[in-house]
């Protein structure tokens, strides 16, 4: 790209501008969610809102912009925005034990969006059946743990048993709560995104 002033200004289209702004703000919101945790009786680790954020990114932004939003989240974190758990940042976090979960978010958001909206653009979520939403989120959960646990296993050089205990078994009960919360949010029609 040239830095000279003679380059023509290449304007961003109206719809794209809105999608870029939404994807970026959603990525920032994921970062803000990383500071929020709820104690949950069945899980020794606190439950954060991030996976819920991934579900909603796919549902409200669709597969393309939902996935793009998660890519922005990861890239901003890698380049130093304190968006990872507890205000972490940098390439080190992506290569650390929880890196697999973070990478999986981009794929998972695309999966939720693609299953909920199908082919051919965004559909109103009110017309999407609850079963379809749940299938989408269940598939995304499988993607998240399917990438996250092997990464943890490889990263910390632990046995597979340990990886499954520390990386999945303790978190899975909380995922059901998040799916319930996501369905509740979509069905309540409280989110006014057009």
């Amino acid at each position: 790209m040239s830095n000279s002033t003679s380059t023509d200004v290449d304007l961003v289209g109206d719809e794209t501008a809105q999608n870029v702004a939404r994807a970026a703000l959603f990525a920032a919101l994921m970062g803000a969610f990383s500071y929020v945790s709820f104690p949950y009786p069945l899980s020794p680790a606190p439950v954060t809102l991030q996976v819920l954020g991934v579900f909603l990114a796919g549902l409200f932004l669709g597969p393309l912009w939902g996935g793009a939003s998660m890519v922005l989240y990861l890239l901003a974190g890698a380049l130093g925005a304190p968006v990872f758990a507890g205000g972490g940042a940098g390439i080190g976090v992506l290569l650390g034990p929880t890196g697999g979960y973070l990478f999986s978010y981009a794929v998972a958001a695309v999966v939720v969006g693609a299953i909920a909206h199908g082919n051919g653009g965004l559909r109103p979520l009110a017309e999407t059946s609850t079963a379809r939403l749940l299938v989408g989120m269940a598939a995304a959960t499988i993607v998240i743990y399917g990438i996250g646990v092997p990464f943890l296993w490889w990263n910390l050089d632990m046995t597979l048993r340990t990886a499954v205990i520390t990386g999945a078994a303790v978190f899975v009960p909380a995922e059901a709560v998040k799916m319930a919360a996501a369905v509740g949010i979509v069905r309540s029609d409280a989110i006014r995104a057009g």
Partner: peptide, 19 residues
């Protein structure tokens, strides 16, 4: 789940308005 839902809904609406 209730608290999560309320927090996320409010945060989403604000983020979308800002966007």
């Amino acid at each position: 789940p209730d608290r999560m839902g309320m927090l996320v809904t409010a945060a989403f609406n604000r983020a979308f308005e800002r966007a």
